[in-house]
Design a protein around this nucleic acid. Structure first.
Lengths: 205, 205
DNA sequence: CACCGCGCTGAACCTACGGTCAGTTGGGGA
DNA sequence: TCCCCAACTGACCGTAGGTTCAGCGCGGTG
């Protein structure tokens, strides 16, 4: 069954509201992005948003999931690709930098959701939906690290801890790049990250 | 001139309000920590807070500065200590983990302020006071890295980028430790961080 | 003991925001 | 052409929470 006309309209609305939400949250921060402003940004009335999302919470949640799905798809593809661990690490880092370069606005939403805000029930909900996303990411990377360890490609260290370090290292660089007017070429930062992670910063004796 | 009795009382009030603020913000997150709850936690009336702080914004700002001053003092001491770069890096990492272990509650405030929230004028103010704090931290570490490079102790890489990686690596581990029921001994994580940063994760060929 | 005034209180005020719903509109079908 | 109804609107409502301020209690003073 092809998409009916209504579905197309529906999808268009949902998408433009979500895009507006990302832009406003990026501009104002999670806490002070108002439904009013998101509606204006999307070019609809406030009430319209409630035709497509139950409440503010659901809007944020769905928006986050839609956007992060894309990132995960690309990072997973890099992790699943053929080649040495170094090649896959490089691919993964490249994917992440590229994604946030293309979706600069999304980063603040991504970042804001790491630390739950809001009342207790909101926090519970956020814990249910967002933290597992991050947790899953860490585990995904940890598994890849474990494989590389078994294959004798990297040192045997706690894979979960390493995954965190690996993820946060590139997050730190992404954050810095986003605040820079003229960041260096992506490839340069990718090389720095990969090289630091693999070989460390010390000069071998 | 010794402290007058009024000064002592004043100082005591300011301190208990700030400590209450940290506890509440840690519990509820920056956005939903209310003046009411902070007042209750401090054992004073809501109005009393306004005798010591102009508004909520100033309370958060002053609280942040007081608390982070302690962290910076300890990290700087580690950076300034004698010894090889490795020893100083280890000391710095130990200091950071120990600080956040002692001040678990403070971490959420610390983290929340990285990403400015609130209306535009609040964001401007936060940018004036908090971002320079982080920036100064990065530069302080970058300088130490530069010295180590000049001394031939570590590889010549962009000191600012490296400083970020270095700082965020331990931040990532701190965050993980805080969410764990029974984190491994501090020393274990310190070793992991230092070893990863210095030697990388790859097995040397 | 009467008075003063400082520090504190918390009810009341006010703004801003999430959420609702009666009313409007315009596209399509009879 | 007229009617219908589903999508959309935005004024309105309730409430939460920051801020204010009139008043209270109490330690100090004459």
């Amino acid at each position: 069954m092809p998409k009916s006309k209504e579905d197309v309209v529906q999808e268009f609305r949902v998408q433009s509201i979500q895009e507006a939400a990302i832009r406003v949250i990026s501009r104002k921060g999670m806490a002070s992005a108002t439904m009013q402003e998101i509606a204006e940004e999307a070019g609809v009335a406030k009430g319209t948003i409630y035709l497509y999302f139950r409440d503010r919470e659901e809007l944020v949640e769905k928006t986050f999931e839609t956007a992060i799905g894309e990132l995960h798809k690309q990072v997973d593809a890099a992790l699943d690709s053929e080649g040495t661990f170094e090649q896959r690490l490089r691919a993964m880092t490249t994917a992440k930098l590229a994604f946030f370069n293309q979706n600069r606005q999304f980063f603040r939403l991504y970042h804001a959701l790491k630390m739950p805000e809001g009342n207790v029930s909101q926090q519970r909900r956020q814990k249910r939906t967002c933290q597992p996303q991050f947790r899953a990411r860490v585990e995904r990377v940890a598994t890849a690290l474990k494989e590389a360890m078994d294959a004798g490609e990297i040192r045997p260290l706690d894979p979960n801890r390493l995954a965190l370090i690996l993820i946060e290292t590139s997050t730190a660089i992404v954050l810095e790049r986003l605040s820079e007017d003229a960041p260096p070429p992506e490839s340069e930062d990718v090389e720095l990250i990969v090289s630091t992670l693999l070989s460390g910063i010390a000069i071998p004796k």
